[in-house]
Amino acid sequence: MNPLTTTVQETGTGTVLRVAGELDYSTAAELRQVVTGLTLGPDRPLVLDLGRLDFCDSSGITAFIVARNHATAAQARITLVNVPGPVLRVLHVTGLDQVFTLEPGTDTRNRGAAGS
């Protein structure tokens, strides 16, 4: 079990939140707390970098929806980058790939493309 770690980086063009480790029932609340504490706006979009996310269950998906609601309320764009294959599959089944902007994204840390 890798515990969840979140890193917030303010860039000139917005906020990057890197999520690493396992996102499940026991850790999702932590991500929800971090993400709803971010100050977003029309010119302060949010990028969720999931490149190092090892596991994500439905509680994690709920946390992404909370992030989206928080961004939408602030009229901020939200983008998921470096989405690992298994998470991408869940986003596809649940139709959330239409709700979130997904980018292969090498922009946050020049890491390789989406995981497994």
């Binding site: 929806i65 596809h92 649940t94 139709g95 959330l96 239409q98 709700v99």
Partner: peptide
């Protein structure tokens, strides 16, 4: 049934 969205997260959903 691709493209069907989770029920209840958006005011209108496909």
């Amino acid at each position: 049934t691709p493209g069907g969205l989770l029920v209840g997260i958006l005011p209108t959903a496909p």
